[in-house]
């Protein structure tokens, strides 16, 4: 007779086992979260080597700080906060990249509240073409990197990592309305920049 399959332990069960010195539980935690920590770190650092090192730092911090984790809180949010802090700690060791003033790229309106007459031609049809869409995605990644951390973290976590809104608000220790405002402004910025490059590609094509 085959042995009954072990149920998958919850995060809290793994935390308790790690606190009790269970090495296997720590390895399971690494298996469960290393890819997500790496991807989150990449969002901050934009570099594979730095993201890998930040992932290692994060799990070392987990090992060192797990004794202080309050088990009435959600592990996921606490641990992502640890991961973000590790990534930022590594980012501070590098020369800081310039960030954009997002207000300069938000849509402009006339005094009556209607859209100002700017280039509003619809470029979304180009996104139906897969190669063009992938090229735009690659540029979108660059535009996200130009944002200040307050906006960059929110759009990266929500639109790329697909972490639920309430969890992001908890990780970043901001309100849900603040989260929504940042996400919307970050998307408006990326939309504006994608429109600029799509417009310039269209003009080049028209010129022949």
């Amino acid at each position: 007779m085959e042995a009954a399959e072990q149920p998958t332990p919850t995060d809290l069960e793994l935390v308790q086992a790690i606190k009790a010195g269970d090495e296997r539980a720590f390895e399971q935690m690494v298996d469960r979260y290393h890819a997500r920590v790496y991807s989150l770190s990449f969002g901050v650092l934009r570099n594979a080597e730095d993201a890998e090192e930040a992932t290692q730092d994060t799990f070392l911090q987990l090992y060192r700080k797990i004794g202080t984790f309050d088990e009435s809180r959600k592990f996921f949010s606490w641990f992502y906060r640890v991961a973000l802090n590790s990534a930022y700690s590594r980012a501070r060791k590098r020369p800081s990249a310039p960030t954009v003033a997002i207000e300069d790229y938000l849509p402009r309106f006339n005094s009556d509240g209607h859209l100002a007459s700017v280039d509003l031609r619809d470029w979304s049809i180009g996104v139906e073409d897969e190669a063009a869409a992938r090229e735009l995605a690659s540029r979108a990644e660059e535009f996200i990197a130009e944002l200040s951390p307050a906006y960059r973290d929110v759009i990266w976590m929500y639109d790329v990592e697909e972490i639920p809104a309430d969890q992001i608000a908890e990780i970043l220790e901001i309100s849900i309305p603040a989260f929504k405002s940042r996400l919307h402004r970050a998307r408006l910025y990326v939309r504006q920049r994608l429109g600029e490059i799509a417009g310039s590609a269209r003009r080049e094509k028209a010129a022949g």
């Binding site: 735009l136 759009i155 639109d159 939309r191 429109g195």
Partner: peptide
């Protein structure tokens, strides 16, 4: 174009 931005991301 706002929706296309979301799809692109």
């Amino acid at each position: 174009t706002y929706e296309a931005t979301g799809r692109t991301l």
